[in-house]
Computed example of a mutant assay.
Amino acid sequence: MRKSKKTVVILGVVVVLVASGLWLLNKPAAHKLTAPTAIPVRVVEVVQKDVPRHTSGIGSVLSLHSVVIRPQVDGILTRLLVKEGQLVKAGDLLATIDDRSIRASLDQARAQLAENQAQLQVAQINLKRYKLLTVDDGISKQTYDQQQALVNQLKATAQGNQAAIDAAQVQLSYTQIRSPVTGRVGIRTVDEGNFLRMSDTQGLFSVTQIDPIAVEFSLPQQMLPTLQGLIKAQDPAAVKAFIGADSTSGDLLGEGHLTLIDNQINANTGTLRAKAEFANDQQKLWPGQLVTIQIQTALDKNALTVPPTVVQRGLDQHFVYRVQGDKVEVVPVQMLYQDSGLNIIQGVQAGDVLVSDGQSRLKPGSQVQVLGDPPQVVQAADAELKP
Rank of each mutant, 00 (worst) to 15 (best):
K5P: 03
K6S: 00
I10D: 00
L11E: 09
G12Y: 09
V15R: 00
V18A: 14
V18I: 13
A19E: 03
L22V: 12
L25Y: 15
K27T: 14
A30V: 02
K32W: 07
T34H: 13
T37I: 10
I39D: 08
P52V: 01
T55M: 04
S56M: 10
S60T: 04
L62F: 06
S63T: 12
S63R: 09
S66M: 05
S66C: 07
R70Q: 07
D74I: 03
I76E: 12
R79Q: 13
L81H: 13
K83S: 11
G91H: 02
D92S: 12
I97Q: 00
D99Y: 01
I102A: 09
S105C: 02
S105V: 01
D107N: 04
Q108W: 09
A114C: 00
N116Q: 05
A118S: 05
L120A: 13
V122E: 06
A123H: 11
Q124G: 01
R129M: 07
L133Q: 04
T143S: 13
A149G: 03
V151I: 04
K155F: 02
A156D: 07
Q159G: 00
A164M: 00
Q169N: 03
S173T: 05
S179M: 05
S179F: 01
T182D: 10
V185D: 00
I187W: 00
E192V: 11
N194R: 12
L196V: 10
T201K: 14
Q202W: 07
F205V: 06
E216A: 01
E216R: 07
F217A: 09
P220R: 06
Q222T: 15
M223S: 11
L227V: 14
L227K: 12
G229V: 08
L230V: 01
I231S: 15
Q234K: 15
D235T: 15
P236Y: 03
P236N: 06
A237E: 06
A237S: 05
V239G: 07
V239E: 06
A241G: 05
A241R: 07
A245D: 15
S247T: 15
G250H: 15
D251Y: 12
E255M: 05
G256C: 06
L258T: 12
T259Q: 08
N266Q: 06
F278M: 11
A279E: 06
Q282R: 14
Q282C: 03
K284D: 05
V291R: 01
T292S: 09
Q294H: 02
I295E: 06
I295P: 02
T297S: 10
R313P: 09
L315D: 14
Q317M: 08
D326F: 04
K327Y: 08
K327A: 08
V328M: 04
Q334R: 07
S340D: 03
Q346R: 14
G347S: 05
G347H: 05
Q349L: 14
L354Y: 02
D357M: 09
P364S: 05
Q367R: 10
Q367N: 10
L371I: 10
A380T: 10
A383V: 09
E384D: 14
